[in-house]
Design a binder for these strands. Structure first.
Length: 885
RNA sequence: AGGCACGUAGCUCAGUGGGAGAGCACUUCCCUGACACGGAAGGGGUCGGCGGUUCAAUCCCGCCCGUGCCUACCA
C-alpha cells in the first residue's frame, strides 16, 4: 500500500514516524562481522549536562551526512555515540540541586554525593541524545557510551597506570591555575583569558637604611602580602646601586631583597617589579632563580590566610581594597593608572582563577606529542582544511605538561594509594589494600579525580571495548574521520592523537574535518548568558529537520563564522516543499506506471529525456566529489540547482506534453525517465534530507527490494548513456525558448497571448535541431505559429533576438509597442557592444596574442566573432524599427 | 606582542590566473490543471586601498586600512 503525499509538506507528520522506524528496525546498527569495507566515526561526546545548541546541530548534521552517504555507498558504517561526564559542570548541576534543599556535598560525603550524581544522570542527564535523534542522527544508538561507564573507566585506569609505569605520569608541587569557586586545579587550556578594565597601582616600597622609595607597579596589590623580593634589570643604572640591598615591605614589615633579573623590562612602569613567587607564574620562575621564599597568602577559596597578618580572613577583593586604602593612608600610593590586561577565568564558572601552589599529577607529554606531530607530518592523519595543521603543529611544538588532577568528586578517581607509614605511592590497576613497598595496610586512595579530557582522549578506542581485544576494535579502528570544531583542536583532537598512538600504535582517525563555529553577530560564541542563542529544536519545529539540515550543509564551508539567518532556513524549507510538490506531480503521472527492469538505451528517449539524464549524471558526479572533499556546501548547491532549476523548471515542464498527450509510447518513455531521475535524485538527496526523501521514496511505484532508502545504493553511475549531440541541440532549443521569453517579458506581451515566431537558422544542422525541438518551443514559449528555416524570409516588422546560431524574429504585428522594442534593442545592443569592445581590445594586444595559450585565443576569437555578428543583426533590426516611427 | 583568518550585489555568503556567482531582498508581469513555501522576465558589484609579478589579477606577492579569532609571562 503506497502512502499518498498530502498537499503541503508538513515535516512533523513524518519525521517522528521515520526515526522510530529506523531505530526499531536497527537500520543504524553497525555489524562488526560485515565483510564490507568499514567507515567509522566517533561522535564528539557532548556533555551529559548539555542541551543541543547550534554547534552540536552543525557538527552532527555533517557527520550524519557522511555516515548516510557512506552507508549507501557500500560501507559498513559505525557512528559511535555517547556523552561525556563533564566533571565540574556535572558536579555543579548536582550541587545546585543540593543547595535548593539547603544541603551541600560535604554533608552528604563523597560516596553519597557520587551516588546522587549517578541518580541525576539516570533521571535527567543526556537529554541531548534525544535531541540529536530529532535531527535524524543515524548513530548506532545500541552502542551508546558514557565516559564514566565501567568499560571506559577501566580503560582510563589502564592508561593511567601504564603511563605511570612508563614514567610519563608524575606528581609535582608547582603553580597551577586554581579556581577558588570550583576548588580545583585547571589545565592551562581550561583558563580563558579576557581583557578586563583594571588599574595599575604604583606602590612605594621604602629602601632600608635610606630615604629612597622603590616604586613598583602592580595590577594585583593584594599579592604584596606574599612579596619576597623586588626585581630590577641588571643594567638599569637607576637602580644599580640598590641591587643587593633590601626594602622594607610596608604593612607586613618584612625585609626583602632587591634582586637583578633580565626578565624585568626597564621601560615598563618604574622599571622595578614586586616579586610574589607563590602567586604569579613569572615570579615563580624568578623565585626559583634567586632562591626566594614562596609565601602562600591565600586559602583554597581565595581568602587571605594566616600568612597575611592582619588581613587574614579577607576575601581577595576585599583585601585589595583595604591594602590600597592602607597604602594611601601611609602616603605610599604613588598613583593609579587605568589599565587593561588579560585576566584568566575558569572556563566553567567564569571566576577569576588564581595561580596557586599545589601538588598535582602531570602527564609528561613531550614524547607523546612528538609522535602525534609525526603522524600529521607523514599524512597518516590528514587535517582538513589543511590550514589547521599549522595551528596543530604550533600548539604541539610548544606543549606543556598536562595537569590532569582535579580536586572534585565526580570523575575517574586517580588509582594511586598513599602509604601513611612509609610515604610511598602505589599506582595500580586493581584496588590496593597494602603498600607495595612496606606492605602496610595503612594506605588511602588519592582523592583527586582525573580531568574529563583524560577519558575523552581515549574515546576512539575505549568506546570500542579497549582494553579488551574486541571485534569492534578490529573492524572499526582506526576510525575514518573525526568531525569537530576548531575550538577543541587542542583540548581533544591533539590528546586523542597522543593517546591513540601510544596505546593502539595507530592514529585514532585518518582524517579530521574541522568545521566552522556558529557564532553570534559580534563574532562571539553563542551562549546562554549572552542571550544570543537560537534553539535548534525551535528551528526544527518551525521548518523541519530536513530544511534545517540543508541549511547547515549549505553553510558548512563558511570560514570560521556562521551567522544563522532564519530567512535562509525558510529558503531551504521552500526547497524541501518544492521537492515535495515535484514528487506529487510525478506521482500523479505515474499512477498507471510500474517500474520494470528496462534499459533506457532500448527506449526512444526524447531530447528532453536525454538532457535531464545528462544533467543528472553531472550532478551525481559533482556531489560525490564534493562529499569526498568535505565540500558540503558545494554538494548542497549542486543538488539545489539540479532539483529546482533543471528538474523542476525545465524537465517537468518539458515532460508535460508527453505525459498529457495521446502518444501512449511516448508517455511510457517519459514516465520511465521521470521515475528514474526522481528516484535517483531522492537517493542523492537522502544524506542531507533523510526524512522527506524516505517518505517520497516509499510513495513511488514499484518495489525496490529494501526497507529503506538508506539501504539503497548511492548513485555513482549514469542512469544511461546520452548522446552529446542530442543534448547540445536540446540546449540550443532551450536557449531559443529563453530568447522568446525574454522578448515577451521585456515587451510585456501578456503570458496568455499566443504569438508567431520565425527562426532563421544559420545552418541546416541548427534548423534540424529546431525542428526536433519544435514542440518544446510551442509549449514553453507559448508560440502558436512557428516557422523554421535557413535564410527564411524575415517578417517586415519584427522584434529580433539572437540565440546562438538562431535569429529569433517575432512579428511586431502581434505585439504592441514599437518604443519598447526600441528600448529593448538599445539595451541589448549596449550589452553586446561592450563584449565587442572588450574582445577587440584584448585581441589587438600584441603581447596577448603572442603569449596566451592557443585555446584561450581561439575561444576569445570565437566569442568576438559571435558578438560582432549578434551586434550586426541587432543594429539592423534597430534601424528597421526606427523607420517605423 | 606573535599567529591565523576575513573584507565580493541592499543583506548572508560561495568562488576562480583568462569575459563576476547563489539564496534572500528589490522591479515588472502572471493565482497556466505539482507547487503563490509558486512561475516567467529583469535591475544591481572599479570583488577594502595602494603598489608589484604576468600577455592576462577579484584570485599570486608586498605594504596599508578595517574586522574577528587563537596563542602569549609585560608587572
Amino acid at each position: 500500500m503506497k502512502p499518498e503525499l498530502f498537499k503541503d509538506y508538513e515535516p512533523a507528520k513524518i519525521e517522528e514516524k521515520w526515526f522510530a522506524t529506523w531505530e526499531q528496525r536497527g537500520d543504524f546498527h553497525a555489524n562488526e562481522q560485515s565483510t564490507k569495507p568499514h567507515y567509522s566515526i566517533v561522535i564528539p561526546p557532548p556533555n551529559v549536562t548539555g542541551v543541543l545548541h547550534m554547534g552540536h546541530a552543525l557538527n552532527n548534521t555533517l557527520q550524519d551526512i557522511l555516515c548516510r552517504w557512506k552507508r549507501m555507498s557500500g560501507y559498513e558504517v559505525l557512528w559511535m555515540p555517547g556523552t561525556d561526564h563533564a566533571g565540574i559542570a556535572t558536579q555543579n548541576v548536582v550541587e545546585k540541586q543540593l543547595a535548593t534543599e539547603g544541603k551541600d556535598r560535604h554533608e552528604l560525603g563523597r560516596e553519597a554525593f557520587v551516588e546522587r550524581v549517578w541518580k541525576w544522570r539516570e533521571e535527567s542527564g543526556g537529554q541531548i541524545i534525544n535531541q540529536l535523534k530529532r535531527l535524524g542522527a543515524s548513530c548506532d544508538w545500541e552502542r551508546e557510551r558514557f565516559t564514566m561507564d565501567e568499560g571506559l573507566s577501566e580503560a582510563v585506569r589502564e592508561v593511567f597506570v601504564t603511563l605511570y609505569e612508563d614514567g610519563l605520569i608524575y606528581r609535582d608541587n608547582r603553580l597551577i591555575n586554581w579556581c577558588p569557586r570550583c576548588h580545583t586545579a585547571l589545565s592551562d587550556l581550561e583558563v580563558e583569558h579576557d581583557d578586563k578594565q583594571g588599574s595599575l597601582w604604583h606602590l612605594r616600597y621604602p629602601v632600608k637604611d635610606s630615604d629612597r622609595y622603590l616604586v613598583v607597579a602592580t595590577t594585583r596589590p593584594e599579592t604584596m602580602l606574599g612579596d619576597s623580593a623586588v626585581a630590577v634589570h641588571p643594567e638599569d643604572e637607576r637602580y644599580s646601586e640598590l641591587i643587593g640591598k633590601t626594602v622594607l615591605l610596608p604593612l607586613v614589615n618584612r625585609e626583602i631583597p632587591i634582586v637583578a633579573d633580565e626578565y624585568v623590562d626597564k621601560e615598563f612602569g618604574s622599571g622595578a617589579v614586586k616579586i610574589t613567587p607563590a602567586h604569579d607564574f613569572n615570579d615563580f620562575e624568578i623565585g626559583k632563580r634567586h632562591d626566594l621564599e614562596f609565601i602562600n597568602i591565600l586559602d583554597e577559596s581565595g581568602f587571605i590566610n594566616e600568612n597575611g597578618g592582619s588581613y587574614v580572613g579577607l576575601e581577595r577583593n576585599a583585601a585589595r581594597a583595604k591594602i590600597v586604602a592602607d597604602f594611601t593612608e601611609l602616603g605610599l600610593l604613588e598613583k593609579i593608572d587605568a589599565y587593561t590586561n588579560a585576566v584568566g577565568e575558569c572556563y566553567r564558572c567564569k571566576t577569576i582563577v588564581e595561580p596557586y601552589m599545589s601538588k598535582q599529577w602531570y602527564v609528561a607529554v613531550k614524547s607523546l606529542a612528538a609522535e602525534a606531530i609525526k603522524a600529521v607530518d607523514t599524512g597518516e592523519t590528514k587535517i582538513i582544511p589543511q590550514q589547521w595543521e599549522k595551528t596543530y603543529y604550533e600548539w604541539m611544538n610548544n606543549i606543556q605538561d598536562w595537569c590532569v588532577s582535579r580536586q572534585i568528586w565526580w570523575g575517574h578517581r586517580i588509582p594511586a594509594w598513599f602509604c601513611d607509614d612509609c610515604g610511598e605511592i602505589t599506582v595500580s590497576r586493581d584496588n590496593v589494600a597494602a603498600c607495595h613497598k612496606c606492605n602496610s595496610s595503612n594506605v588511602r586512595q588519592e582523592t583527586d579525580v582525573l580531568d574529563p579530557w583524560f577519558s575523552s582522549a581515549l574515546w576512539p578506542f575505549s568506546t570500542m571495548g579497549w582494553p579488551e581485544k574486541t571485534q569492534a576494535l578490529e573492524k572499526f579502528y582506526p576510525t575514518s574521520c573525526l568531525v569537530t570544531g576548531f575550538d577543541i583542536l587542542f583540548f581533544w583532537v591533539a590528546r586523542m592523537m597522543m593517546m591513540g598512538l601510544k596505546f593502539r600504535g595507530e592514529v585514532p582517525f585518518k582524517e579530521v574535518y574541522i568545521h566552522a563555529l556558529v557564532r553570534d553577530e559580534n563574532g562571539h560564541k553563542m551562549s546562554k548568558s549572552k542571550g544570543n542563542v537560537i534553539d535548534p529544536l525551535v528551528i526544527v519545529d518551525q521548518y523541519g529537520a530536513d530544511a534545517f539540515r540543508y541549511t547547515l550543509c549549505a553553510f558548512a564551508a563558511m570560514g570560521r563564522d556562521i551567522k544563522l539567518s532564519t530567512e535562509r532556513i525558510g529558503g531551504y524549507r521552500n526547497f524541501v516543499n518544492k521537492l515535495w510538490n515535484a514528487s506529487r506531480f510525478a506521482l500523479m503521472n505515474l499512477k498507471d506506471f510500474e517500474p520494470a527492469q528496462v534499459e533506457l538505451t532500448d527506449l526512444p528517449l526524447s531530447p528532453a529525456d536525454q538532457w535531464i539524464l545528462h544533467r543528472f549524471t553531472y550532478a551525481m558526479e559533482e556531489v560525490n566529489q564534493s562529499l569526498t572533499k568535505y565540500k558540503f556546501n558545494d554538494a548542497a548547491s549542486i543538488l539545489y540547482s539540479f532539483t529546482w532549476h533543471e528538474f523542476c523548471d525545465w524537465y517537468i515542464e518539458l515532460s508535460k506534453d508527453n505525459l498529457y498527450g495521446d502518444d501512449a509510447e511516448a508517455r511510457k518513455v517519459t514516465q520511465t525517465v521521470l521515475y528514474q531521475v526522481l528516484e535517483g535524485l531522492l537517493r542523492l538527496l537522502h544524506p542531507i534530507l533523510p526524512f522527506v526523501t524516505e517518505e517520497i521514496w516509499h510513495a513511488l511505484p514499484g518495489d525496490r527490494g529494501v526497507d529503506s532508502i538508506m539501504q539503497a545504493s548511492y548513485p555513482t553511475n549514469a542512469i544511461t548513456v546520452t548522446d552529446t549531440a542530442v543534448v547540445e541541440d536540446m540546449e540550443r532549443v532551450m536557449e531559443v525558448i529563453r530568447a522568446i521569453r525574454n522578448v515577451r517579458g521585456e515587451l510585456e506581451v501578456p503570458p496568455g497571448k499566443k504569438i508567431k515566431v520565425v527562426l532563421d537558422c544559420k545552418s541546416a544542422d541548427v534548423e534540424q535541431a529546431m525542428n526536433v525541438g519544435k514542440q518544446y518551443i510551442h509549449t514553453l514559449a507559448r508560440v502558436e505559429e512557428l516557422e523554421v528555416g535557413v535564410s527564411v524570409e524575415h517578417p517586415a516588422q519584427a522584434s529580433t533576438q539572437v540565440a546562438g546560431d538562431v535569429e529569433v524574429l517575432i512579428p511586431l504585428a502581434d505585439l504592441i509597442n514599437v518604443a519598447e522594442e526600441e528600448a529593448r534593442l538599445g539595451k541589448e545592443i549596449d550589452k553586446v557592444q561592450k563584449d565587442v569592445t572588450f574582445f577587440t581590445k584584448k585581441l589587438s594586444n600584441e603581447k596577448f596574442v603572442a603569449n596566451a595559450p592557443p585555446q584561450v585565443l581561439e575561444k576569445d576569437r570565437a566569442k568576438l566573432g559571435a558578438a560582432e555578428e549578434k551586434l550586426e543583426i541587432l543594429e539592423q533590426s534597430l534601424k528597421k524599427i526606427l523607420t517605423m516611427k
